[in-house]
Amino acid sequence: MITPKSEEKVLPISIPKDSPWQRLRAYFQRDTTVGYLFISPALLLLLTLVAYPFCIALYFSVSNTMVGVPGSFVGFRNFINLLHNDIFLQTLQNSFIFTSVSVFFKTILGLALALLLNQRLWFKKFIRGAVLLPFVIPTALSTLGWWWMFDSLYSVVNWTLYHLGLLRSPSELNWLGTPYLAMAAVIIVNVWRGLPFFAISILAGLVAIPRELYEAAETDGAGKVSKFFYITLPLLRPVLVIVVLFSTIFTLSDFNIVYVLTRGGPINSTHLFATLANQVGLVSGNIGEGAAISLFLFPILVIIVYFQLKMIRKE
């Protein structure tokens, strides 16, 4: 998309110069006019409801604003307080573990699932439809289903493990009441929910790999394993990078799953930036500090945007 000088664009219709009505009409036919006219609603929306709130967030983060009470400037005190706050440090650690483990499993399992879907399968359309379902149903509601499955009294997960002989009693594991298990539960649900996106995107990448490459490799005597590592993986790299970057930012800023499943508990062991920001900013009313917590997402966002744009430029 290179923008040539807009003035050079000649009108496709010939118009006698003197009529003012036609001159007006011609003016509204110009690419520049129409372009600005068409893009202005979108631009207005993004300026007022994305850029402006972002500026407010910046202001909030350096103020001691409470809900309903305008605050005053306090410098970087919110950020300094946060870095000395055990709950926040815990949240940082949680976010790191949650994001890295989830994205890792989503990539590996997504790749496996995509390879599987790329085979000749019976009921292919049906299976593909079933795979996408977790992505389509409302996360908050499917998480309710998971909550029930993890619940200590009726835990379906424990029941299954018990009947497989892996547990001594059906109530041995208190999934949502034990910090490590709660984190595991939240990660499992996130992987379940994010997998379709990975699988389908990687599948699209797989389909785009020219068949001739495999045929050429086969005549050279390449086996299944070497075909995968020397053809499939390198050619999938751009897709993998984009999907992983994309998923990282949305996994890191996840709210629904943690909120419904654990509310950040037990003992703050599953709080992420979004849930903690909601807790501090709206439930406790300390909007300044809440905004500061949310803003910790920003540097990571910048890094991801940078790499994404670089990928797009390459294409």
Binding site: V50, F54, I56, F60, F255, F273, A291, L297, L301, Q308
Partner: peptide, 16 residues
């Protein structure tokens, strides 16, 4: 803006 997560903006938006 497509990449900006709602979690970053929900606090100021609630005030708006």
């Amino acid at each position: 803006t497509y990449l900006v997560p709602p979690a970053l903006l929900f606090l100021p938006l609630s005030q708006v």
